[in-house]
Each structure stands twice: as structure tokens, then as C-alpha cells.
Computed example of a mutant assay.
Amino acid sequence: MSLGVVKSLVGFLLLLNFCMFVIVAAIAGWALNNALDHTYSTGSGKPFPVGFSPVYFPMGNEATGFMVIFSLIAAVVGAASCLSGLHHLRVWTAHSLASSTASSMTAWALTLLAMGLAYKEIHMGGRNAKLITLESFLIILCVTKLFYILLIHGGFFGGNYCSYQDTYVATTTTTAEPQKGSTTVTSSV
């Protein structure tokens, strides 16, 4: 594949992933806000009711709270990894590949964790349309983030990256002070 095609596909996947991570953050943020507005209020000195869970969500099932929290974390890390990927797309060197890959793989791992909790929530049932949308976006994000990681590594192994030696500029430096009667000693590094 030519460099232009690879960079175009990477750019498209970055934009797609960033938009999807923003949507996931918005839906998970709504669910967390809704849960915080409807949590138990016991007052001072009163004990918590039996069966109280600190991750209580009035919608969904027992897995909803964990899925929403991990979805929020995955969305924030994923959006940040897209910004790192944008820098990599701009400079496209082996050095920027390392930071882009590290942040992308971290975001992908967190998205996989949230997707696993989404599978558990799907299996348990009893969720509303917004949670079904959140689950769908998590599943799609796992696939598109994996394609992005494979694509930037495919470009690397295809030889489309310049190396450190390609960007290095040699300079001439003086290694010692010249003494009377001697010639100047220089070396190129």
C-alpha cells in the first residue's frame, strides 16, 4: 500500500474513533449523572439499606454501574489516544509511532474491558435504549481501534517510516583547543 493510502485510512479511523469515543463519553456521562441524581439519601447517622451498592444505577442491571464507569475511563483515554495519533499522522516517524501505539493499546485494552462488561450486561438483560447504544458503540470501537493499531504497524513494517539516521544532520566540532604549531583536529559526528 502506498503511504498516501495508509495515511488516509489512518486519518479516517482516527476521526471515526474520536467521534465514537466522544459519543461513548456523553452517554456514559448521562448514565452516571442519572445514577447520582437517583442514589440513596440516608441522611446523617442512618445506616445504609440492605443490599446497597456504591455503584447503584436505577436503570439496567447489576453490571450497568461497572460498565458505565469503565466506559467513561475508556472514552477519556481513547479520545486522548486519538490526539496522540493525530500527532503521529502529522509527523509519521518511527519515534511518534511508539507514543501513538502505547496510548492506543492502552485505550484499546480499557475499551475491551468495558466491552466485556457490556457483554455481561447484554447477557443479563433489562436495559434501556441508551444503554443498548452504549454497548453497541463499545463493541464497534474495539474493532475499529484494533484496525487502527494494525494499520499503523502495517505502515511501519512496509517501510514507510523514516529512521533516526535519515533525519540526523552531521556537524563538525572541535575536539581540543589548538596549540601553537599544531593543526586543528576536527571530527564529524
Rank of each mutant, 00 (worst) to 15 (best):
L83A: 14
F156L: 15
I27H: 02
N34G: 04
V143A: 14
M67L: 14
A25I: 03
I139S: 11
A26T: 12
A28C: 08
L14M: 13
L110F: 15
F18P: 00
M124Q: 11
V76I: 15
G155L: 04
L83Y: 13
S103N: 11
A94C: 07
W30S: 09
L97K: 09
F157G: 10
S41L: 10
L15S: 13
T93D: 15
V76R: 07
G51V: 09
A114T: 04
M105T: 07
K46V: 05
K46E: 05
G78S: 05
I73P: 00
T93V: 12
S41M: 09
L16C: 00
L97P: 06
A102R: 12
G51W: 02
G51L: 12
M105W: 03
S104L: 15
A109K: 02
K145E: 08
P54S: 12
L89R: 07
A75M: 05
G29R: 01
S81I: 02
F70V: 05
I140E: 04
A114R: 10
T133C: 12
G125W: 10
R127M: 11
G126W: 00
L110H: 10
E121Q: 14
I69P: 02
H87V: 12
F21H: 14
N17D: 15
P47Q: 08
G85Q: 06
I132K: 07
C19I: 00
L14V: 07
L138F: 01
W30F: 14
I27M: 02
A129H: 08
L86M: 13
N17K: 07
I152A: 00
L112H: 00
T144Q: 04
A79F: 04
A98D: 11
L138Q: 09
V50T: 13
Y119S: 06
T39K: 08
L131V: 01
L89N: 07
V77N: 05
T39C: 03
K145N: 07
F137C: 10
A118E: 05
N128C: 09
T101R: 11
Y56C: 05
V77K: 11
L141D: 12
M59H: 08
T64Y: 01
R90D: 07
V77Q: 04
S53Y: 08
I139Q: 11
F66G: 14
F21D: 02
Y56R: 10
F52N: 02
L141S: 14
V77R: 12
N33D: 05
F18M: 03
V76L: 14
G43A: 06
A118L: 04
E135V: 11
L14G: 10
V55L: 15
G125R: 12
A118D: 02
A25C: 03
I69F: 03
I152L: 10
M124Y: 06
I152P: 01
C142T: 14
A74V: 14
L131E: 15
S96M: 08
H38G: 01
L32P: 01
S136N: 13
S41D: 07
A35P: 04
S71T: 00
S71N: 04
T101P: 00
G155T: 04
A35L: 08
C142V: 10
G125E: 11
G155E: 05
W30E: 09
C19H: 00
S96V: 03
M115D: 12
S100T: 11
L131P: 02
L138I: 03
E62C: 05
H95G: 04
Y119A: 06
G65I: 07
S53R: 14
S103P: 00
